[in-house]
Every structure is written in C-alpha cells, then in structure tokens.
Amino acid sequence: MASSSSSSVNYDWIPAIALNYGVRKKLALYLNPTNTVAADWTDIAEKMEFTYLEIKNYEKLENPTKKLLEDWQTGAGATVGKLLSILEQAERKDIISDLRSLIDEDCRIYEERQKELPVQVPEVDSRGQDRGITVNDGHMPEMFDAFICYCQSDFQFVHEMIRQLEQTEYNLKLCVFDRDVLPGTCVWTITSELIERRCKRMVVVISDDYLDSDACDFQTKFALSLCPGARTKRLIPVVYKPMKRPFPSILRFLTVCDYTRPCTQSWFWVRLAKALSQS
C-alpha cells in the first residue's frame, strides 16, 4: 500500500517494527475478541500465511495479536504498508481509520531518524576513515567484536562487562560509545557506521531506563532493520537487573542473556563471551 491522498507517509518501505506500543495495544483491542461479524486476529494470521498449528498455539495466549505481530514483523516484507493491506483485505477499514493518526506519527518518527543516514553516510564513506570516528582509528578503521547499546544510568554494568570480557582470557574488543567514539561526530551516522560495518555483534543492555532512551531505541531499530539473517545473528539482548516495565516486544524473538537469576549468573559471562566470539 503506497501513501494515500490523506497522508504523505510512504508505508511500503517502513518496517512494522516502527509501530510502537500504543498502536499495538489498540490493534489487540480490536482483533483479540472473537467476532462472528468482523474479522479477528485469526483471519489476520491466515492472511499473514501462518500455519494452522501456529494459529492453534496462538489461541492459548492471553494476547494473541501481540505475539502475532512480534513474530510476523521478523519476516521479509513485513512493512506497515503490508499490514494495512492485510487489514483492508480482511475488511477492517474501521481499524485503519481509527488508528491512522497514530500509525502516521510512528512512521514519521521512524522516517525522521532514517533521514539522518543518507545525508551523513557519504561523509563517512569518503572522509570518515581519514579523520577517524573512534579514538584508535589509524590508516585502517578500528574493528570490534561487539557494539554495546546502553543508557547512561546502566554505565556501571557496562564497566563490569568491559572487565569481564576485555580484561580476561576472552580478550574481546567492545565498542563503548563514551569511551571509544570521538566527540563532535553525528550520533546517527556513527551508529550506522559502527553497527553495520565495524562490529560483528550488538549487545543491547535492557533496563527500564533503556526504554525511555531515544538513542537506544534508534540503535536497536537500526540493527533490526538490517536483513533478517544479519539481525538474528548480530543482536544479543542482555538483562542485568529486574524490570518493572514489559520487555520490548521487538526483541522478544531473540534469546535473552539474563543476569537477574542467581542460578544462572555463574555461567552468564561464559555464555555471552562465546556468543560474541562466534565468527
């Protein structure tokens, strides 16, 4: 579905992960109830080409629409435009009409963040290596085993991560923004350069404060916007303390490295180090 006359947003290129909690919650309110008159989540699941067994498993969940969207958005071609097209095919234009403004807002936020990249990437490609973007850049760009995505309030845990992974027999090389990136460079440009080209993996330190960070949100969604094979291989979520807020839905399809359980802490660093050491 291309942008309509009532909206300047081009839905066809915006990935479904751009849709935030408010839209997903309202979609669930519309689609979760079994409805003999209008299409519900089961009809949407069929049009998304989920199998009979998959749909039967979703029926056991309290919020099947939420899980359905989380699983569907990881596949190829899962765009906002495709989702709207599916809703139209299911004759649920009432949902589209009610949620249009919220969807447009999420899409515009995503577009604004992405627009930074095409303007700045040529600068990185043509001159970035000469002037350097990390403190140890020389004739060749500095490479890393992992880019660490974190918010400032979690920096103490990042220090512990450095100690456990860099200063031990694992001898890994981490890219920590506050330590390794030169000041005065464009945050969004450096993010794309480091995540896409210089770092084999990305570790996302999840916390309640992370959920409020625009920078963390952008970095995570940028990593997820890479091709499906790359993003599932590259991105590793880490939870190091209990959370009051729900775990971000866009990461639920990835295995989490959990430091909060005492019974697993003894092999936490070994497990994470092995994941980062893979070629």
Rank of each mutant, 00 (worst) to 15 (best):
S5A: 07
S8P: 15
Y11L: 02
Y11P: 12
D12L: 09
P15H: 03
I17F: 11
I17Y: 15
A18P: 09
L19Y: 12
L19D: 02
N20E: 14
R24G: 01
K25N: 03
Y30W: 13
N35P: 03
A38I: 13
W41A: 00
W41M: 01
D43W: 10
K47V: 12
E49S: 02
Y52G: 05
L53S: 12
E54N: 04
I55S: 01
I55L: 03
K56R: 08
K60S: 05
E62T: 15
P64Q: 04
K67T: 09
L69P: 09
W72K: 02
G75V: 02
A76T: 12
V80N: 01
K82E: 02
L83C: 01
L83N: 02
L87H: 09
R92L: 04
R92M: 02
D94E: 05
D98Q: 09
S101H: 10
S101D: 11
D104N: 14
C107L: 06
Y110N: 00
E111W: 15
E111Q: 12
R113V: 02
Q114G: 05
K115V: 10
E116I: 10
L117I: 11
V119A: 04
P122Q: 13
P122H: 14
E123P: 04
E123Y: 08
E123S: 15
R127K: 11
D130E: 10
R131N: 08
G132L: 05
D137L: 02
D137G: 00
M140D: 15
E142M: 03
D145F: 13
F147R: 00
Y150E: 00
Y150F: 10
Y150R: 00
C151T: 13
Q152A: 12
S153Y: 13
D154F: 15
V158H: 07
M161W: 15
I162W: 13
Q164T: 00
Q167W: 08
Q167C: 03
Q167Y: 09
Y170R: 01
N171E: 13
N171L: 04
L172A: 00
R179A: 01
R179P: 11
D180W: 13
V181H: 14
V181I: 05
L182E: 15
P183Q: 01
T185G: 02
T185L: 14
C186T: 11
C186A: 05
T189W: 15
E193T: 13
I195M: 06
I195W: 06
I195F: 14
R197V: 01
C199L: 12
C199Q: 10
K200R: 13
M202P: 15
I206V: 10
S207P: 04
S207V: 03
D209H: 14
D209V: 06
D209G: 04
D212K: 09
S213L: 09
K221R: 07
K221F: 13
F222P: 00
A223P: 07
L224M: 14
P228Y: 11
I236H: 09
V239A: 00
V239Y: 14
V239D: 03
K241I: 06
P242F: 12
M243Q: 07
M243L: 11
F247I: 04
F247G: 00
F247T: 02
R252L: 04
L254D: 13
V256M: 05
T264R: 14
Q265G: 03
S266A: 05
S266E: 03
S266V: 04
S266I: 07
W267K: 08
V270R: 11
K274L: 10
A275G: 08
A275P: 10
S279C: 07
